[in-house]
Computed example of a mutant assay.
Amino acid sequence: MRIGIVCPYSWDVPGGVQFHVRDLAEHLIARGHEVSVLAPADEETALPPYVVGAGRAVSVPYNGSVARVNLGLMSASRVRRWVKEGDFEVLHIHEPVVPSLGLLTCWAARGPIVATFHTSNQRSRAMVAAYPILQPALEKISARIAVSEYARRTLVEHLGGDAVVIPNGVDVDFFAAAEPRQEWSGGTLGFIGRIDEPRKGLPVLMKALPAILRARPGTRLLVAGRGDEQEALALLPTELHGQVEFLGMVSDEDKARLLRSVDVYVAPNTGGESFGIILVEALSAGAPVLASDLDAFAQVLDGGAAGELFANEDADALAAAAVRLLGDADRRAELTKRGSAHVRRFDWSTVGADVLAVYETVTAGAGAVAPDDRVGLLGRLGFAREPGPPAG
């Protein structure tokens, strides 16, 4: 099958959607499908052979974070050329309501379109206000996927319609087979995420750390991710700075080794999460997981059966739970056993088959869909009116 996948966010800035698109593409390619991914990327970025760069991204605030997206006349031209040259049997657009390549592709495309919605946002005035602009594009989507029940709920409440829930995937065996590193083992807590993004929760963990260290003096915190290390340490008494080690950005291999090494992986995220792929990766590596009780995290952790939960943004609750886990090897072993069994449902062998089933469904009954004939904003973005058959 010839498959075109659209990533809305810059390929050169790591993130959950980018990782999902990458892993899905590589899973499909390994199974003999012809896949091309369109993504924003700086000209100097080294891209995998299956990725087509659509130009430099710009930073915009989105869902409590900063997203690097691509939208403009030059991008519109590149989208049209990619769609035409690819002659795809199905287009899979991620986050079609984000002002980026996915929206441009919806406007430009003919044929069956599958859209995956990743965002969980209980109240988005911007999404509601933008609906009249989004509607023509959304009407061309043949099938909708949401990565979690909470992403599906956001879609239903803000845009109408419905979606099948297919979670993010992970290569479970890749993480399970990683070799632990001795220097990252022995009384260690792990955190992976952008240091300077408050919703990832590192400030909550830093606030909890003094109490953890009072109860377990030899504990170390390993932090992997980009951001201002000194700003993060400012939340911690100076005499405790030596108990925190910043690893910077790590490769996929080292991320897996880190998760295989730590005694407890901590996910103190405070909101804006629709799934929690890092939890799935941690479970795959056999790490006992301690996470804030966000709805999406609770779902990934099977309501607390596959990992422990603490009250969101409650540093005292985090500290108490971490101290208990660090002092209870039997409980950690139990969580590892339960998590390793539970996480198999997120393996690409299952998730990829579900996504392919959606592709096969929409291509089986698809007819050609004409480019949108509306003028105004679409015309200004370079989508001129083209003759074509009536929309089906």
Rank of each mutant, 00 (worst) to 15 (best):
G4E: 10
I5L: 13
V6Q: 02
W11D: 09
V13P: 00
H20F: 05
D23K: 02
A30S: 14
R31L: 11
H33Y: 07
E34D: 14
V35S: 10
D42K: 06
P48H: 04
V58Y: 03
V60I: 13
V60N: 07
S65Y: 04
A76C: 06
V83A: 14
G86M: 09
L91F: 05
H92K: 11
S100D: 11
L104C: 10
R110G: 07
A115G: 03
R123A: 13
R123W: 14
A126V: 10
M127F: 01
M127E: 12
Y131A: 13
L134A: 06
Q135G: 00
Y150A: 06
R152N: 04
G160M: 01
G160Q: 11
V164Q: 15
V164H: 10
V165I: 15
I166K: 04
I166S: 09
G169T: 00
D173V: 08
D173S: 07
F174E: 13
A176K: 11
A177R: 15
A178Y: 04
Q182S: 11
W184S: 07
G186P: 01
P198V: 08
P198D: 12
M206A: 10
A208F: 04
A211Q: 14
R216Y: 08
R216S: 10
L222R: 11
G227R: 05
G242L: 07
S251D: 08
E253M: 09
D254N: 13
L259Y: 10
Y265S: 03
A267W: 00
T270H: 05
T270G: 06
V280L: 09
E281Q: 14
L283Y: 03
G286F: 04
V289C: 10
D293I: 04
E313Y: 00
A315Q: 05
A317N: 11
A319M: 11
A319P: 08
L326G: 06
G327S: 13
D328I: 05
A329Q: 14
L335C: 01
K337S: 13
K337F: 08
G339R: 13
F346V: 01
V369Q: 15
D372H: 07
L378I: 03
R380F: 00
R385K: 08
P390M: 12
A391R: 14
G392K: 11
